[in-house]
Design a protein around this nucleic acid. Structure first.
Lengths: 125, 125, 125, 125
DNA sequence: GTGGTCTAGACCACG
DNA sequence: GTGGTCTAGACCACC
């Protein structure tokens, strides 16, 4: 499910973190669903277990998953983010919008993309 | 004009690149306007000249500025981006939107922010 | 009476140990009162009997309960702690106070919380 | 300055994290003061660099220090904690107080210790 | 079997 | 020289 790009300068553990984050956000993984074990995922991604472990740790501190010793890792049921995280997201969002406009993308097209995402997220619920 | 944050984990050359990019996008720097020399900017930012040089190089390959041997660096007059750049921007844009929705931000609020940006960009023209 | 949090990184046996410890300290369980059997408690908590057994063992070595072969486990009647335990408690107490002050909590607020605890403990007697 | 206890079941990286945290809180390390490099500290503690690295990472995410690539790690100047952290501290604080009272420590003695800490923290400022 | 910790040693990006 | 990433392999605690 997750594709790693070794050419990308972004660290592997971040790519894994982001990949799982997307799966959770898009609703592909349900609340309290169990994630693959650290070992299994490391094998299927041909990556060192420590790298996966680190990704899971990050996801845990960010509140996306929770970890049970000797059991496994599970999708968190209460998505919560602090003010700072939300603000950062809005900043990054605004940055992308400004660049898109700068490169000539028009209002209608951007709104179209935005509405499409809203509809997808609605359906996922 | 550009503020460097040493505490930020983002490399200095990237912060400089982004800072100049924003100035150009927001219209603070006009087409064909000359940028400060590598040496001057490195002094005013108190960073190594190599760091500024690297930022300028990145901006040139990304098409934001052009360089004239022995003269200096100037703001590009034709803002053009290839399909790949635009697609990447849309992907990153979509990613942020999905996360905002996931964390409970509602449609109206996001649209409000979006429209605010459109208006600002209109005024800058 | 005891709530287990699987999402907590603290081991289950420690959570059980602490839960019972609190019941004893708060006076909810009287001296020489009998604790539920290992088997019963393991059923009502839906955990492995070994886990409860381990918690009881810890409580016994720490002096909170005593065990009678073939009869059951009972709340200790003489709450006594060696110098080392008391010192450790004071150290941990001080540590928390320093952190609270460091993060800006003021004298009055901390004293308020402290006095509230004193009053609660007085009432429980 | 930091003492590691290999017999303690607490992980080394946590012991290091806590040790540095105490130095910062007690005022032994001033704001923006540079911490020893990852390598240096790992040598002086006879520990693997990764272990120190992890401690520093934790301190950074908790807001106690900030890291500058290619430069070093520095004590953060703005101590800030979210509501959750503060609440947890109060809970742990209360827990210790209750146990102290349970083991027969009287009100006056605890207040004495508390006031002593306040005075020390005042002086450190 | 699961997550978590630690070591040893290599390599890269940054300034 | 500094922080950061990654691998390989070992060991422990938990359930």
């Amino acid at each position: 499910m997750i594709k790693l790009d070794y050419k990308n300068d972004k660290p592997l553990h971040e790519q894994i973190t982001q990949g799982i984050k997307e799966l959770i956000i898009c609703g592909a993984m349900a609340k309290d669903e169990q994630l693959p074990s650290v070992r299994d995922l490391s094998v299927s991604l041909t990556v060192n277990p420590n790298t996966v472990q680190r990704a899971y740790k990050t996801l845990e501190t960010e509140g996306f998953i929770y970890s049970v010793r000797g059991r496994g890792n599970y999708v968190s049921d209460i998505p919560s983010a602090d003010r700072k995280t939300i603000d950062t997201l809005y900043d990054e969002f605004s940055e992308r919008v400004r660049e898109l406009i700068f490169f000539g993308e028009d209002r209608e097209k951007i709104l179209l993309v935005l509405n499409k995402i809203f509809d997808e997220m609605e359906d996922a619920k």
